[in-house]
Each structure stands twice: as C-alpha cells, then as structure tokens.
Simulated scan of single mutants.
Amino acid sequence: MSDLKSVSASPHVRAKFTSGNIMLMVFIALLPASLFGIYNFGLKALFIILASVITCVLTEYVYQYFMKKPITIGDYSAAVTGLLLALNLPSSVPIWMPVIGGVFAILVVKQVFGGLGQNFMNPALGARCFLLISFTGRMTNFTYDAISGATPLALLKSGETVNTWKMFLGSTQGTIGETSVIAIMLGAIFLLATGVIKITIPASYILSFLVFVGIFSGRGFDVNYLMGQLCGGGLMLGAWFMATDYVTSPITQKGRVVYGIILGVLTGLFRLFGGSAEGVSYAIIFSNLLVPLIERFTLPTAFGKEKKRA
C-alpha cells in the first residue's frame, strides 16, 4: 500500500458555522430589503413573500418525505430560496406565480440534482428566469404607488435621466427587494461583519461592471449614469446575496475574482446590447455554469502532488 497521501486542494480551514447557521444569517440579512419592500409596495408584497417561502419549504419537505430522504428544511436553505425568489418578483404578480416558481426552484433546480450543495445554479434565479420566460408580461409589469411605469433602467436604456437619490432610497418601480440600495447594504454589511461572505466577488463584480459600462455605453464615466446603472435593477441584490452563494461560486480567491469579472462583463453586455434593460439574473446563471471551468484553472496544486511540466 502506497504511503503517498492524496490531499484535496485548499482551502482546508473550515468555518465554525454550519449550513443552517449560514442560511439563517442570510435570511436575517434579507429582512431589511424584505421589510422595505412590504413598506414600499404594501401587503401584496407580504403575501407574495409568504407564498414563496411557504411553497419552497413545503415542496422540499414533501419531496424528501415521499422519496424517503432526510428532512432538511431545518437548515433554512429552502426558506432563503423562497425569500430570494419573492424579492426578485414584481409586487403586481398574482399569488400563484411565486407558488409555481417555488416548486420549480426546489424541485427542478435543487432536489432533482441532489439537494443543498449539488445544485448547479442558484435556485431562486433559476425560478425567476423560468417565470420570466413563461410569463414575460406579468414579470415585467412594475407598479409604484398603484401606478404602472417604466423602471429606472428602462428609462436609462431609452436615453432619459433618472433620480439616483430616489433609486438609492428605493422609492421607484422595480421588484419587491431590489429598489432600496440602503436596505440591501444593511444586510450586506451584516453578512460581511459576521464573516458569512467575503467582499471579493461583490467588489470585482461591481467594479468590472462600472468599467465595462463606462467604456462601452457611449456615456463615458458620467457619474449620474453609472450610479443609475449601479442602483437600478437587481445588481446590488444579486452581487451581495446571489453571486456569493457558496454552492454556485468558486472557492479560490483567484477564481472569485475571475467569476466577479465575468459577472460584470456579462451584466454590462446584457444591459447595453440586449433587448432587455436588465441582465443580472441571466449573468449570474450563465456564470454559475462556468464555475467548474473557472475552478479547473484557478485551483492550486494539491499538496503532495507534482505539478505537471509543460
């Protein structure tokens, strides 16, 4: 028997948090955006959030019960998926849409591939894109103060100016959880302070996006335009809460930087040259699919193995 030990690539140090602890803290970090969404859009937003979270938890329980698998709803991952899905929906959608989306997120994206830790894309964003493709009209109908209108990103795409201060506060059209940058950042600061996430992915994502937009938008590095692009849509919510998902993001520092840059470039491409004003969801999902390739080229050589010579 060989004495050669085969050790996997770093990192080897594990945090003291369990999966349940991490998911619970992410859920708590999403509460400021959730509460502001309810304040901003009314009780309809609360009903959508409850429908989405309950559907995701029940779907996971029922699937695991009938498949005779361990029940894992206590790790809060299904609840986080439901909350993220709800925050990515307009307040005008009917209640049956978050129900369909929740079933799709848990059953198709998560459980069919093995459950938590095995999904190849973010379940909430997978469900959002499924709903966006299936019910485009309802998913792009945004209201604020009971008035339907274009989102700030749509206004920017048409060449108009936007009030970035209102976008920062959140008093604009958009999905339930994406409008208030302040609320999102409160949750992000909590996650950074507790060590649940690192700043690498959000920072590389945001910086690469701003550079790409500044170069290719035709508006140059116009501060108001760049801030409008940064505060509008789901970029801040996606950068801090979905791009940083442990399962679907790289584990190495170099990989995270590359991942963030790809996210920024893809989001810029979709927003500037695509048919829609938004692009965060598709950028994150597409980048999720590239994670195995990114890790293949950024993983350090495992200890105890000789690096292949060219």
Rank of each mutant, 00 (worst) to 15 (best):
T267V: 14
L31C: 10
I251F: 15
V99K: 06
L87G: 02
T244W: 08
G114V: 09
Q253M: 09
F17P: 01
R256C: 12
N141M: 14
Q64W: 07
R138G: 08
L207D: 12
G137Q: 13
G232M: 04
S19P: 09
R309Y: 11
Y282I: 15
T143M: 07
K307E: 03
F27P: 11
K308N: 00
R138N: 13
I261V: 14
M25P: 00
I106K: 06
C56Y: 03
I54K: 07
I294T: 14
I261D: 02
T18G: 13
L192K: 02
F120G: 02
I95Q: 10
V57N: 00
G82C: 03
T301F: 13
D222A: 01
M23T: 03
G74P: 07
G42Q: 04
S171W: 01
M242R: 04
M167E: 04
I189D: 08
K157V: 00
L153F: 12
A124K: 05
L289D: 12
F286I: 05
Y76A: 07
G115N: 08
K254R: 02
Q64D: 14
G117P: 01
G195A: 10
V108A: 12
E178T: 01
G264D: 09
V211N: 12
V93P: 01
G255D: 03
S158C: 03
F27E: 02
V53E: 09
E278I: 06
G159M: 08
N288V: 13
L299M: 12
L290V: 06
A302T: 07
G149Q: 07
L269M: 15
P123E: 13
S34T: 15
P32Q: 09
F168C: 03
V196I: 13
A105M: 04
A51F: 03
K69N: 07
L263A: 08
L226Y: 10
A283M: 07
V26T: 12
V26H: 09
L269R: 15
I28S: 01
R309P: 08
I133H: 04
L263C: 08
N21H: 15
Y259W: 07
Y76R: 05
L226P: 00
P90F: 00
N122F: 08
G149Y: 03
S249W: 08
T252M: 05
R14H: 03
L132W: 05
I184A: 08
L125E: 08
N21E: 15
I294V: 14
L290Y: 07
S287E: 05
R219L: 04
T252L: 09
P98S: 06
L192W: 04
K157R: 13
E295H: 11
I284E: 09
I71P: 06
P98F: 00
L125M: 15
G260T: 10
M139H: 10
F47C: 10
F142D: 10
I133N: 03
F27M: 00
P94R: 11
T301L: 12
E278R: 09
T55L: 01
L272F: 02
G255N: 15
R128E: 00
L155F: 11
G114Q: 02
F47V: 10
G117A: 12
L207S: 11
A45R: 01
G214S: 06
K166Q: 10
Y65W: 08
